[in-house]
Design a protein around this nucleic acid. Structure first.
Lengths: 279, 279
DNA sequence: AAAATCTATATTGATATCCAATCCTGCATT
DNA sequence: AATGCAGGATTGGATATCAATATAGATTTT
């Protein structure tokens, strides 16, 4: 199997994407090494990987922290994401066969059913996976990895500015995009992608931050294998609960995952936070 | 300043991009730790960074090796690079001001002069930097980093399949692209970018590998600070020689950096190496 | 009392040494 | 010749230790 530091990288990544470890949170080597019951070196390696992925920053002699992107970087991230998805869209409109379009439509249909059933968490997850599926159909692993990283970083962003609708509940956009691309109407498709992301980013900019900050110990407790004897304090939940919770609502973090229809109209004066970081 | 492992990551990266460490080369922890006179752990951290960047692969209990991309990955890399540059081009054609176009033209002019002067190494370097400058004008650091990584990986590719023309000596393409974009003729500009990269990739596919394999010790000798007492065997060259050599021809590696005009015609049956890796 | 400085503690960066697991090589055997 | 085994080498990891640095608390000064 993979090395321990890789496992820990994965766990930390998941915890960050679940908004359990929020931007700015200190990732102390000693603390994490006690939590995971490994040596500091293993933790350090995991933190290096996190930093390379853009999810953490390492300050010399100060330690690692969950990354806290600036407003500038947030805009750049969505810009890059738009660029990538537009490029992939252009490729797909030329190269994708009927079975591919079908796969996309099936996915949208599943999300629609989830929305109807009121299963917000699942709908949210499917909404995110739509974009992943979209890129996967390009059959370019390099592109997939780039896109996945961008998605991770935008997910991180969302724990900074909890929007009341999440990344991809813009279901109609997804459906319309498929139609436009299959018909080869490239230009409106491009604009749709751009406005799609713009809608999301605008939603974020004006919202005010929330998110309770958990200590790493509390945040990571659900991910730990509690079959072996515990050293630390608490830790009653077991690993199986994670899957259940995956991509869904984490009550402790105070996240609200309302499904909403668009608001393309909203041109809210986007100046809630003119300066540096999205505190 | 930056940590030692970061310094070593940078040195190894440079050595790989200079084709001194070629794909498949074993990067043993003990050997490197002796070469750089640091502990194994520092080396390990550097190798992790290299692997995250796609320049090395780490196999469990076997160690790290300079990455040896498959033909498939090579094609995907150029595909991704094309996608990114097309996207940036589309943005620039809308947003770039006269001073930006001017900057690009100046760059091309400098490369033209280098070609005229017969300074192949400089022309080659400028040719590569054109693409970097291009992306930098988008003012998107996220995009810049993605692009830079793709460039690094394609550069790695070139040490696998030494083409007799290098990445970006297609001077006319660069100049024409600027003209097309400034005039807003987006579609031909996109096609130009695609064919630009296709030309390069086609050139690679049919060429047969060469490149003498150096031992890590020999390969890294020029990068070491020889002011402190040497432990290892040889090592007469000093650091100043590196700069001189940077981006240029490394005689030991047997590289040939001929500047050539295009060969858009060449539709050579591209089946020199149908199977897996570009050996 | 507020500000500035200094000291003590905690954390990181790094080294050395040690150990287990695993891979590879070479030798012996069939 | 092919197979199987043993030993060596290498990686992944643990632990203990040390120097450098940053934070926080205590002390002094204004």
């Amino acid at each position: 199997m993979s090395s321990r530091s890789q496992t820990i990288t994965a766990i930390l990544t998941k915890a960050i994407l679940d908004h359990r470890l929020v931007p700015g949170c200190k990732l102390g080597e000693r603390e994490l090494s006690e939590i995971f019951d490994v040596s500091r070196i293993v933790i350090r390696q995991a933190l290096i990987r996190l930093a390379d992925d853009g999810l953490a920053t390492i300050e010399r002699n100060r330690g690692a922290f969950v990354a806290k992107p600036s407003l500038q970087e947030a805009l750049e991230l969505y810009d890059a994401l738009t660029l990538v998805e537009q490029g992939v869209a252009a490729q797909l409109s030329e190269r994708l066969g009927p079975s591919g379009w079908n796969e996309l439509r099936q996915h949208v249909e599943r999300q629609r059913q989830a929305v109807e059933a009121g299963n917000d968490a699942l709908a949210d997850l499917l909404g995110q996976e739509y974009h992943t599926l979209f890129v996967r159909l390009s059959r370019n692993k390099v592109m997939q990895e780039i896109h996945a990283q961008l998605i991770r970083r935008t997910t991180l962003l969302r724990s900074l500015i909890p929007a009341d609708f999440d990344y991809c509940n813009l279901l109609d956009d997804h459906s319309r995009l498929i139609d436009l691309l299959e018909k080869g109407r490239l230009k409106p498709a491009m604009e749709l992608i751009a406005s799609h992301h713009n809608t999301v980013v605008r939603g974020y900019i004006m919202d005010r931050p929330a998110h309770v900050e958990l200590t790493p110990r509390d945040a990571l407790a659900p991910y730990l294998d509690t079959t072996r004897p515990e050293k630390g304090s608490r830790g009653s939940e077991n690993a199986s609960e994670i899957r259940e919770e995956a991509g869904g609502t984490t009550s402790q973090a105070g996240k609200t995952n309302k499904i909403r229809s668009h608001r393309h109209d909203g041109h809210h004066s986007a100046n809630a936070n003119p300066e540096g970081t999205l505190q």
